[in-house]
């Protein structure tokens, strides 16, 4: 068999066995118990929580992130092994949500780590969470969930953004292309 075909088979296998890191931030953690237990039962899709990041595939960022929490999130994300997927959970990870003017929460998660699927809502219903998992499975099957490859490819840009947030200053900003500056 060709290499591509093996890849396809491994994608079919891995989409049916997603292990989720047990790392909960913000209020989204409260939505997880009904999804995990008998009422909605996400285990029937092959998803369950795993206590260590090194053995997990999916990272749910469940809510707002203070800069202090972002440091821990980046550490956990970097400990996970490839392939790894991130689900941004609730409006706080999209644009800050109700913390849009808070001095110590980040506003857009995808500036710091790559996000494959976002769920809108404050908070999202358990149906929406399961729907996002199905969407993620579909993306894995088609080979579209490539956030972990983006993190490798644009590592310097992600690290630069993380450093700006961790140090609360933009000092390191340099125009990425000199041409852009000249045009304006």
């Amino acid at each position: 068999m060709k290499h591509e075909e093996w890849k396809k088979i491994s994608r079919i296998m891995s989409k049916r066995s997603l292990w989720m890191v047990h790392f909960c931030t913000g209020c989204g953690a409260m939505e997880m118990p009904p999804v995990m237990t008998s009422r909605y039962d996400m285990e029937r899709f092959g998803i369950f929580a795993m206590a260590t990041p090194r053995q997990a595939d999916v990272f749910l960022v469940t809510g707002y992130l203070a800069v202090k929490t972002l440091k821990r999130v980046v550490q956990v994300y970097e400990q996970m092994r490839d392939p790894k997927y991130v689900i941004g959970f609730g409006s706080c990870t999209i644009n800050g949500g109700m913390y849009w003017d808070s001095y110590n929460t980040i506003k857009d998660l995808s500036k710091y780590i790559p996000v494959d699927v976002y769920i809108a809502g404050c908070m999202p219903r358990p149906e929406a969470i399961i729907d996002s998992f199905l969407k993620l499975m579909d993306m894995i099957d088609k080979g579209e969930a490539i956030g972990w490859q983006k993190y490798r490819k644009y590592y310097d840009q992600y690290k630069r953004n993380q450093k700006m947030a961790f140090e609360y200053r933009l000092d390191e900003v340099k125009p990425i292309k000199e041409d852009d500056k000249n045009e304006s």
């Binding site: 800050g96 849009w100 003017d101 808070s102 001095y103 110590n104 980040i106 506003k107 857009d108 995808s110 500036k111 790559p114 983006k150 644009y154 840009q157 992600y158 953004n161 700006m164 947030a165 140090e167 609360y168 200053r169 933009l170 900003v173 990425i176």
Partner: peptide, 27 residues
């Protein structure tokens, strides 16, 4: 590194707009 953030002369909205909204997207 900045002024203590709960003081009233600390302009939270300006600080947020100058920091978090100006962090560039990953290109």
């Amino acid at each position: 590194p900045h002024m203590p953030p709960m003081r009233k002369d600390f302009d939270t909205e300006k600080f947020v707009k100058d920091l978090y909204y100006k962090i560039p997207e990953v290109n």
